[in-house]
Amino acid sequence: MNTSDTQFDPTQERKLSLSAHAMVLVIVCLIGLVGNTVATDIPIADGFVGLIVLYVISMIGLLLTEMVPVKLPSVAWISLVGILLTLPWTPGSEWIIAQATNVNFLTLATPCLAYAGIAIAQQEIDIAKSSGWKIFIVAVLVMTGTYVGSAAIAELFL
């Protein structure tokens, strides 16, 4: 193991401004809309409204990330906003749920993974190569252990 990878730290993400987030989200939602229209029989107009709803939820979550002093990742805030707006006790939740239903959940992950594939850096390939087969085996076992461990405990208490 050498130390050539020391400059590479994925926790040091470049911080983008709220307006940059807002713009990228528009692009991502439009790509998502095309994907949704290709993948399902849902009319484009219905998918469009659905994505506007998801866009607004994401933006509220991003605003909360900036404003609330509790340190949680923005995805956690976005989840919470989505949950709170669709609770059975929330007024108007049925309308929001109906709109969101017009967007296929799995399709929304497709553009993200395309960005992820394009974003793989030379350092990451170098780390994978230099770590070799041992770290590959360990990584597969780490993921298997995490998954089976959680499933086993959940099974016990369900």
Partner: peptide, 26 residues
Amino acid sequence: DVRAASPLIVIAIMPFIAKFGTIIGP
């Protein structure tokens, strides 16, 4: 382009996470 893609991954997953929220709530 490769460098530009990296910070976009977490933004691209946000609508997906929002959608998940709307599945959990009900």
